[in-house]
């Protein structure tokens, strides 16, 4: 089994303790960085994501795989910066103004990180101005908004309107989700996409961004 295959298996099986060492060994053996990331780590998380969406895997095991991937990435990070390798996509993500619920947001963020996205978590109760500032700073491909309450879902539309007024509405794709959010609602506020649950959010994001 090659180093890349071993690493892929390790991430799928959640071998957190062994991942940094094996990653180091792969680098010392001269394995290409891109090869490790694409065919080792991200390929593993694609398998994990598929197993999860098909109900074969439970969330804690999926999160362990994501942690294993991150521990490997931590070893690779200095080299990634040196070689100018970019994440598959950059995302800013927050729970909208007036809402402090964040379980769904946190879950989707972990899944997105597992899929090779760089995610900037803006936290909860995020004002439109803060979304705007984060978009200006991080130049993301995707802006994700979450809400749990019917009384706060209106803040999604307000945020999109604010981005429109600031002239950056079209600079980023916007995706929304949360318990009261529906496809119709997402269309009515001008979002580009909507995911009904955490399991489908990454696939929807990839589709929106044209990522294979």
């Amino acid at each position: 089994m090659s180093y890349v295959e071993k690493l892929r298996t390790l991430v799928i099986e959640g071998g957190l303790a062994e991942a940094p060492g094996l990653t180091q060994e792969a680098l010392q053996a001269g394995i290409d960085l891109r090869e490790i990331i694409d065919h080792g780590l991200i390929a593993a998380m694609e398998v994990v994501g598929k197993k999860f969406s098909e109900g074969e895997l439970y969330i804690p095991e999926m999160l362990l795989s994501a942690k294993t991937m991150q521990s490997s990435l931590n070893v690779l990070r200095p080299l990634i910066a040196d070689k100018g390798i970019k994440a598959k996509a950059t995302v800013v993500f927050g729970t909208v103004q007036g809402d402090v619920h964040d379980i769904g947001k946190n879950l989707v963020i972990m899944m997105m990180q597992g899929a090779g996205f760089e995610v900037h978590d803006l936290g909860t109760d995020v004002a439109p101005e803060k979304f705007y500032a984060a978009i200006q700073t991080h130049k993301p491909d995707l802006c994700c908004m979450s809400a749990l309450l019917t009384t706060t879902q209106g803040a999604m539309g307000k945020t999109i309107k604010f981005l429109q007024e600031k002239g950056i509405r079209q600079a980023v794709k916007i995706m929304v989700g949360g318990a009261p959010i529906t496809e119709d609602f997402s269309l009515s506020i001008g979002a580009h996409g909507y995911a009904p649950d955490a399991a489908s959010a990454v696939e929807k994001a990839k589709k929106l961004l044209g990522i294979q």
């Binding site: 969330i59 649950d197 399991a199």
Partner: peptide, 8 residues
Amino acid sequence: VMDMKTAE
């Protein structure tokens, strides 16, 4: 309790 397959 959170369903560990669906996060519901």
